[in-house]
Simulated assay, not measured.
Amino acid sequence: MSDWIGRAHAMTQLGVRAQTLYAYVSRGWIGARPDPADPRRSLYAASDIDRLAARQKRPRKAGAIAAGAISWGEPSIPTRLSTIDRGRLIYRGEDAVALSATATLEEIAALLWEQAAPPHFAEADHGAFASPFAALADLAVAAPASLHRSPTQLGIDGARGVARLASGFGLPESDDPLHARLAAAWRVDATGADLLRQALVLIADHDLNASTFTVRVAASTGASIAACLLAGLATLSGPRHGAAGASLAMLVGQAERHGITAALDQWLAAGHELQAFGHMLYPQGDVRAVPLLDRLTLDPVMARLRDAVREVGGQPPNIDFALCALARALALPDDAPFVLFALGRSVGWVAHAIEQVTTGSLIRPRGRYDGAMPTAD
Rank of each mutant, 00 (worst) to 15 (best):
M1G: 15
S2Q: 09
I5E: 04
G6S: 13
A8G: 01
T12M: 09
Q19F: 05
L21T: 05
A32Y: 00
R33L: 11
P34V: 04
S42N: 09
A53Q: 11
Q56M: 13
R58H: 08
A64I: 04
G68A: 10
W72M: 10
G73P: 02
G73F: 05
I77G: 01
P78S: 12
I84K: 00
I90T: 03
A101Y: 01
A103G: 01
L105S: 01
A110T: 01
P118C: 02
F121G: 03
E123H: 10
E123C: 11
F133D: 13
L136A: 01
D138A: 15
A140L: 04
A143R: 05
S146F: 01
L147H: 12
Q153S: 11
I156D: 11
D157H: 13
D157V: 10
G158V: 09
G158L: 11
A163V: 09
A166V: 02
G170Y: 11
P172S: 12
S174P: 10
D175C: 04
D176I: 00
L200K: 12
L202I: 01
I203P: 05
D205H: 11
D205K: 11
D207Y: 00
D207I: 10
S211P: 09
T212D: 05
T212M: 00
C228N: 03
G238M: 10
L248Y: 11
E256R: 15
I260S: 03
A269E: 12
G271C: 02
H272A: 08
A276G: 14
F277L: 12
P283R: 12
D286G: 08
V290H: 06
L292Q: 07
L292M: 07
D299V: 07
M302Q: 14
V312N: 05
G313I: 14
N318E: 06
L323Q: 07
A329N: 08
P333F: 07
F341H: 10
A342S: 15
Q356H: 02
T359K: 08
S361R: 15
L362A: 08
I363S: 00
R366S: 06
R368V: 00
T375H: 04
A376K: 04
D377V: 11
